[in-house]
Design a protein around this nucleic acid. Structure first.
Lengths: 191, 191
DNA sequence: GGAAGCGGAATGAACGTTCATTCCGCAATA
DNA sequence: TATTGCGGAATGAACGTTCATTCCGCTTCC
């Protein structure tokens, strides 16, 4: 039989997929319950309400992604090496959590997220912003708003992975290498 | 007093802003009515239902953007000149229709859109895809899925404009020029 | 005075949420 | 080992609320 922990995780996993595919507002509690194979009421044994479920889910995956980014980060590496680490973190993280980055990318604004979730997301932004700003300082990265640079790299990756999920393109090593190169050319300084 | 035409446009404009800011599902008819300064019932004099309103709005702006893209397109220009035209089309179009590109970018999937709207959106994709594929053929554009290239350019621009709207960055000529350069470096072929 | 346009109260469907009830694994008993 | 009793987990029908949509009386115009 399933343990209680498993049910909580079933609910989170179902919610992740539905929120990513349909968005928070278009996803109903009964939908989540059905996908998770639990009764609607069961969801309220684990989460006080839909908003809380959303916030817990968001924090769970932002935390995990932050860990992926931070673990093994080449603090003393070159700018290019650091960029490579960030890019590979996205690849690895997405391999383990298919819908997570898209979910984070499409649900990072207020109105449903609480202060704590937003603060955590800000940590994520800060991490990459620090990288870009250091790179700008050293003349390695194009002098542009860091937020915009972040958007290019994350946005592009998420879009690519969406194509992969749809089956429109095959996710080969070469494609990923090209993509990394493309993103790098977008953000690096050209003399 | 306002003419009937004006009311229709007030409703569309209000819906555009709300759909862009909150998303289709989180926007209620009473919200649109209030913002447009009309009664909720009045909306149903102009649109059979919320979904139809959405589709008309979507088609309206995709059509306008397509016109912007096509008018003055340098068919016989260089790849770089054509890219410049596409980029400047986004800039000009956004100047006239602040929320439109973001709305299009965030609401281009099925479930609410009907066949006709999706087909029109496909025209938009085709236009830019043709540009990229011709460029790839000529060796001017990086050999990558055209959809992904489109995503980089559009995604990046929309993100930048969001920062502008939030007041996080100032939209100067230099910034736009840098941004165009960044996008171009992302998609162009490097030997 | 009649027609058309409009607004907002009324309506029914669908939602998030609650709660009385059922279910299930385990401890106690013999 | 078989039976009973217990307690928390799980359930889904039912509740109040909110939404999209309809309807009807009022205003405006000719």
């Amino acid at each position: 039989m399933e343990t209680a922990t498993n049910k909580r995780e079933d609910i989170l996993e179902a919610a992740l997929v539905l929120f990513a595919e349909r968005g928070f507002d278009a996803t109903t509690i009964p939908m989540i319950a059905t996908k998770a194979n639990v009764g609607a009421g069961t969801i309220y044994r684990y989460f006080v309400n839909k908003e809380t479920l959303m916030n817990q889910l968001f924090r769970e995956y932002v935390t995990r992604f932050l860990e992926t980014l931070r673990s093994g980060y080449p603090d003393n590496g070159t700018c290019r090496q650091q960029f490579s680490h960030i890019f590979n973190s996205m690849v690895r993280f997405t391999l383990d959590n298919e819908h997570a980055l898209y979910f984070i990318k499409t649900h990072n604004r207020p109105r449903v997220l609480d202060e704590e979730s937003l603060a955590l997301y800000q940590e994520l932004l800060d991490f990459t912003r620090d990288f870009f700003e250091a790179g700008i300082e050293m003349g390695k990265i194009r002098r542009m708003p860091a937020n915009a640079l972040i958007a290019i790299v994350f946005g592009a990756f998420i879009q690519l992975h969406q194509l992969v999920r749809e089956g429109a393109v095959e996710e080969t090593i070469e494609l990923l290498r090209d993509y990394e190169e493309s993103c790098w050319d977008a953000v690096r300084a050209h003399e």
